[in-house]
Design a protein around this nucleic acid. Structure first.
Lengths: 343, 343
DNA sequence: AAACAGACCGAAAAGCTTTTCGTCACTGTA
DNA sequence: TACAGTGACGAAAAGCTTTTCGGTCTGTTT
């Protein structure tokens, strides 16, 4: 068949191909496809059909080159497991609107040089903004003030107060854990948590002790039990705790992992949960929380919401509305079987 | 100070700015920066210094527009947890070489429409290729044969044998699990696994039964115990199994999650691990495997390697060396305390 | 009939880089 | 002296889209 589809084989169709196929100029084709007026309905139709037929998809590179905006952002993480990054990515995708903005995900693996490398690559790709996900809630070094695009730090704040950081309020999270336990009738509360060198451990512990003090309740075991972020510590600490303070009727575990260890030890020691003793964790990590016996009540740090807010702030910053400092989000308790005798 | 850095405020420097600052033409500046010859050493030096001073970073959009290659690939996933995607992403990043290629990560969340949307967005961004990560090892529908860029399916294969898929050999994985148990002295082996509608469950079970048959060993419990992919099933199935066949001395669990449930139940029933009974899982998911008591021996599905290979195949396909069909990778047993009385 | 308005469309520039090819000056040679 | 050859550099095109502005054509008004 003789055809005027002169589009080269393999190359995807260009606007010029569409225009030729529809028998109009490039300018008219562009206007027709972008819903501009100044195009007769019949002409627009012809162009749209041609575009459809050729599977035309406008070249975002050319568009970005022209507009100065690429509709892409970089998400820089060091979170090897994707435990934080993925929910944050999803929240960001939601906020941006699917398809409107695409996200470059880069994993620096904790290596500053690799991170610098990635930043360079992202800037040369002309991302419209950068989201930096911390590997912990501890403050991390800033990417610097002189980047040509806005940056939002998430989960772990930047050390530079001039930067904008979006974090979960971990002190409040600790407080909420205690308040939930008290609301479900507990009075003798202990706290087993992770490595004291982590801000997450310190902050949650501060919230726990402050809430207990406010309520006039003791911290059972006399002090916060700092240790490591794993199940083994949860088990060991629980055994120690029950020896020293067998009257304990609730344990705030510093993470869901620790909580799993706590539950394990409690089972072994013959305590029934939640009748004899309640347990609450942090992170609300489904794989851990919904598979324990009973299912684990946990403080959800609202990572998707963090991502959504970060994306929104990034948008605002692109439009010139730049903010500074740390913005905190409240966490929220997700109630399951370890604190309430549901099913 | 009077300056010839006429680069507009805020806009990042362009090659034209550099050329002006160095007092040469754009063409010469380009050649100097890209190591082309036909540039005098002194001139090259001047250009390099100017570029440094202006923090010049070449616009990848313009380069991509010209070259027809963008140095970007799309990674399309439906794996909400990032459990498969992140290791695969990291493997791919490794293979591409950090900074040379950037990865768009898109999560379709199991929604075909959203997926189509993302594919469109990626194509309009002119990615050089696509990696599709399945949400399970079951075959998934193909993106189609008429895409303008090569596609590699990872973890779960495409239904279309014309596509290239890179997967772990789950039958072999099941076989390896049995062989490891036998090598460590077990003879009475049972298999508790997930939902029989999943290819992963069926394949691993096939490998287990085939290996047992080859070795002339019985499948303890008489049949594969299919159920669900969670700890509760692992616990329940273990209790059932020990009632029916108390002589069992090893359990192949269909996943690390199930294995955790198995371990839990075995503890409750007073069996000592690995003295009385050994347990092996699949996935080698660190958070589960290294936190159990004892630590869990598991079959590693080598996701990073999968990602690396996918990236490599994608590269080859970009260069015209297109392959078809399913390429299988062997898994590998990671030995820990539930099969060998180490520490 | 002449001028005008309005609707529709096309030419061209801008955005940035790479590459090709042409230009220029200079050196060595016939 | 004239010429070819060479080394260094610049002009310009290509890659694709959007937008502005000017042009054409039809129909209307005085």
């Amino acid at each position: 068949m003789s055809t005027d589809e002169t589009q080269a084989r393999g190359r995807s169709a260009t606007l010029s191909d569409v225009a030729k196929a529809a028998g109009v100029s490039i300018a008219t084709a562009s206007k027709a496809l972008n819903g501009r007026d100044q195009v007769r309905a019949e002409t627009r139709d012809r162009v749209l059909r041609a575009a459809e037929r050729l599977a035309f998809s406008p070249n975002a590179l050319a568009k970005g080159l022209l507009a100065g905006r690429t509709g892409t952002v970089g998400l820089l993480t060091s979170d090897l497991e994707g435990r934080f990054s993925i929910p944050i990515l999803m929240g960001a995708e939601d906020a941006f609107g699917a398809g409107k903005v695409s996200v470059f995900l880069c994993d620096a693996r904790g290596d500053a040089i690799r991170e610098q490398h990635h930043v360079q690559a992202l800037l040369s790709r002309r991302v419209d903004g950068l989201i930096v996900v911390g590997s912990s809630t501890d403050a991390r070094s800033s990417l610097g003030r002189d980047l040509p695009v806005p940056v939002v730090y998430v989960y772990g704040p930047s050390e530079d107060p001039e930067d904008l950081s979006i974090v979960t309020d971990n002190v409040d999270a600790g407080r909420q854990a205690v308040e939930h336990l008290v609301a479900t009738g507990r009075q003798r509360i202990a706290h087993i948590t992770g490595d004291a060198s982590y801000a997450a451990a310190k902050d949650r512990a501060a919230g726990v002790t402050a809430a207990l003090a406010d309520l006039g309740l003791p911290l059972v075991g006399d002090r916060v039990m700092f240790g490591s972020w794993n199940e083994a510590w949860g088990r060991g600490a629980t055994r120690l705790l029950l020896e020293r303070a067998p009257e304990v009727d609730a344990i705030v575990a510093g993470s869901d992992q620790i909580a799993r260890g706590v539950l394990d030890a409690l089972h072994e020691l013959g305590r029934e949960i939640p009748r004899d003793i309640a347990v609450i964790g942090f992170d609300n990590w489904a794989i851990l929380a919904t598979n324990s016996r009973p299912q684990l009540t946990s403080v959800d740090l609202r990572l998707e919401e963090l991502g959504r807010l970060a994306a929104q702030r990034l948008f605002e910053a692109m439009d010139g509305d730049v903010r500074h400092g740390v913005e905190s989000l409240q966490s929220r308790v997700v109630t399951r079987g370890t604190t309430t005798p549901s099913n």
